[in-house]
Design a protein around this nucleic acid. Structure first.
Lengths: 180, 180
DNA sequence: TCATTCATGTAAGTGGTTACATGATTCA
DNA sequence: TGAATCATGTAACCACTTACATGAATGA
């Protein structure tokens, strides 16, 4: 029962690295967590407002004229730890590719193969994204304490993409022998 | 823009294998597609009703007194093919484990390791589920034309679970060297 | 000066879950 | 007769996306 939104957790977590604006929170999530998380403005701003009125974040003056950033309060930091330790909220699975492969008989082996080729391409593209992230991380000097953890997530992405490619290759070979 | 629900696709696809009741549709999804798809009653019954009034499925008398099953119409079969060939609706990623690992510095290496151990256990459990499915599939004599496709999905599940285990092992080793 | 980026927000809609209510059928 | 399973549905709620509206600051 996800009584509390996952967005709370993501926003608090991002703000724990550095105070920033709602706009910057979204950019951080897109650029740093994009491979395994996403939030939209329509979710971030209301969340920030509610966190603020709950005393978990506060507005601090920013560098630019009139701008203000959101910063974690002590209570916010505690709440973050609580949420990080809470059991994961698992969303029910919805894998469109697997659904189509499962009922592949209806569209035939060629159509399924086309779908899988596409998946293979995406996985390869992901691999190059992870390579890019790895290179960027090696140059980065800030946030040294976070980097080893970030490397673990990149490694997870790589493992899963490699597994996807292997399955695609295997399946394409198998599909070639299916009756058409 | 997912103008049309994914549930339509899933329900039509299940009914393409055999006519059945809404209750049976849910059981089929849970038992056969459970690893990569899910639907709730609250979604299935309204969907069945709307598919019926759209002329994509029809009620046919069932074996038991007063019971009736849903069967695909010709239009329903066409619609299914259309949906199977349509581009996949991708839901934005939400990986709670990766989010926690990414911000692992906040809870420390031991807590992260505990999370990963848990994930490893789940992956191993999944592997045994897939073994069970494989055994069941070998005995099954019906639906011979579907079986090769079902085997592909099982293989995908196995690949991904094995990759998960490998990543967990690697990460647990790495975490042991993190400063605490 | 004008396009781009930074920035904040809201309204409408949707796809979905959960919990509840109800009742028939089967079988021990 | 009574428990378990089969069966159908609905009402309330929720997290989230999309699209829209608005405007300040920056820099070519």
């Amino acid at each position: 029962m996800p009584r509390t939104s996952q967005t709370d957790l993501a926003v608090l977590a991002v703000l724990s690295v550095a105070p920033m604006s709602g706009y910057a929170v979204r950019e951080a999530i897109r650029d740093q967590l994009g491979q395994f998380w996403s939030e939209s403005f329509g979710q971030i701003y209301p969340t920030l407002a509610s966190l603020n009125s709950a005393g978990l974040v506060e507005k601090v003056p920013g560098e630019r004229a009139g701008s203000s950033l959101f910063s974690l309060t002590t209570a916010g930091r505690e709440r973050l730890l609580e949420l990080l330790r809470a059991p994961e909220v698992t969303t029910p699975p919805r894998n469109g590719l697997m659904l189509r492969v499962f009922f592949g008989h209806a569209i035939g082996p060629e159509a399924v193969a086309a779908l899988i080729e596409q998946t293979r391409d995406q996985a390869l593209q992901q691999l190059s994204v992870f390579d890019g992230i790895t290179r960027m991380m090696q140059q980065e000097t800030e946030h040294a304490e976070h980097r080893p953890y970030w490397a673990l997530t990149v490694s997870a992405g790589r493992h899963s993409a490699l597994a996807a490619v292997a399955w695609c290759d295997e399946s394409l070979e198998a599909l070639a022998t299916f009756p058409r």
